[in-house]
Simulated scan of single mutants.
Amino acid sequence: MAKRFPALGSDQHPFQKPLLLYGVLCFVLGLAMYLTGVLLVFPRYLLNLHKLLDPVAEALVWYSGVPIMIGITLSLFDLLYMHKHKKPNVPVRFTPVQRRRVTVALTAYNDEESIAGAVEDFLLHPLVERVIVVSNNSSDRTFERAEAAGAITFNETAPGYGRCVFRCLSEAVRFEDTEFVVLCEGDSTFRAYDIEKLLAYAPHADIVNGTRTVEPLRQYLTQLSVFMYYGNIFVGKLLEAKHLGRGTITDMGTTYKLCRRDALIRLLPHLNPAVNLEFNAHLLDTALYQDLVLLECPITFHPRIGFSKGGNVDNWRGLVVGWRMIVGLVSDWKRYA
């Protein structure tokens, strides 16, 4: 029986190999080796471990040049030669919006403190046709409060952020009277007024991904720490390197995005809901593999109501999720196949 979620790189053309992605990772590995070798000076002298650590430090510093040079070579080859074969030679996309109405789909997990306010915020926006809330088997009153606020509610019993998002999108595309689906969260970190901005980019793209990396639009005290902020930019640039010439990406973890309904219908069969907290990276990576046009739009970002249950719990959790994103990008998400 054929797999439902085929490996992304299974039919990849030689010109499409992500050499820049591999090059950047090789360079980072070599730099990490070099810095580790240099920093071993402290235990060597403080603990008098010269005989044990001197050969290790010397080897790390000496051989760090190998991945660094491989990384530089791969990156330059991809940028200076392969780029012209990868960048699509097509006109700038412009598909006029026929009907400026959207279906909003909110994910929620134990968000009883915030969900009603989030639903009401979106329902009051003049461009919103309806709000869907998918509760990921919440143990509190999230489902009841979303329903009371006027949302169309669903309960996804299978645990995992990816399964919740997948259910959100699957339910939203059933409504044929809206050309667009807006995916968001029910924790009040995002605002309905940004729909206007997302729609302004809609004629040029299949997916408009909100980015939280514009400083004046990001409130200072949010769950997005400095480490997570720059980590999202770094992993976003890895995705950009993987699909060289296809997009500009500065935020991999944002959950606020606008998608054309017809593009989602095409994309959903290729998404794997078993991917958990790194599902946003999986979605964007898969969309680019399916030749969908991806754009970013600056959005506002606010402190959440309640406690984070996702990748923003703390820096360590963010590091783990970021590492899983990188592994997924390099392996084409094969571990979930």
Rank of each mutant, 00 (worst) to 15 (best):
K3S: 12
A7V: 06
L8T: 02
G9E: 06
D11E: 14
Q12T: 11
Q12G: 00
F15Q: 09
Q16A: 13
C26M: 13
F27K: 10
V28F: 11
L29Q: 06
L29Y: 03
G30D: 06
L35G: 02
G37M: 06
V38F: 08
L39I: 10
V41E: 10
P43W: 13
Y45C: 08
Y45E: 15
L46F: 14
L47C: 09
L47S: 06
N48E: 15
L49V: 08
K51M: 10
P55I: 14
P55N: 12
P55Y: 13
A57T: 12
V61M: 15
W62Y: 12
Y63S: 13
I72M: 12
L74H: 03
F77P: 01
D78P: 04
H83Y: 14
H83R: 14
H85V: 04
P88W: 05
P88F: 08
V90S: 12
P91M: 06
V92N: 08
R93S: 10
R93Q: 11
F94S: 10
F94P: 00
F94E: 11
T95P: 00
T95C: 02
P96Y: 06
T103R: 12
V104E: 04
A105H: 03
A105W: 03
Y109F: 15
D111K: 13
D111R: 15
E112P: 07
S114Y: 05
V119I: 04
V119M: 02
D121K: 09
F122A: 03
F122Y: 15
F122R: 06
L123P: 05
E129Q: 13
V131N: 05
I132D: 00
V134I: 14
N136G: 14
S139L: 08
R141W: 02
R141I: 07
R145Y: 07
E147T: 03
T153I: 14
A158I: 15
R163H: 15
C164N: 15
V165Q: 00
V165W: 00
R167T: 15
R167M: 12
L169E: 01
E176A: 13
E179I: 06
L183I: 07
E185P: 00
E185K: 02
D187L: 07
D187R: 09
F190K: 12
L198I: 10
A200M: 11
A200S: 14
H204E: 08
A205R: 06
G210K: 09
V214F: 10
V214N: 04
P216D: 08
L217Q: 04
R218H: 15
Y220T: 14
S225P: 03
V226T: 11
F234N: 04
V235W: 00
A241W: 00
H243D: 00
M252P: 01
G253V: 03
A263P: 05
L268Q: 08
L268H: 03
H270K: 13
N280R: 09
N280C: 09
A281N: 04
H282Y: 07
H282R: 08
L284D: 07
D285L: 00
A287Y: 03
L294M: 05
P303T: 07
I305Y: 00
K309G: 09
G310A: 10
G311L: 13
V321K: 02
G322K: 01
R324G: 01
M325K: 04
M325V: 09
G328R: 01
G328N: 06
Y336S: 04
A337Y: 04
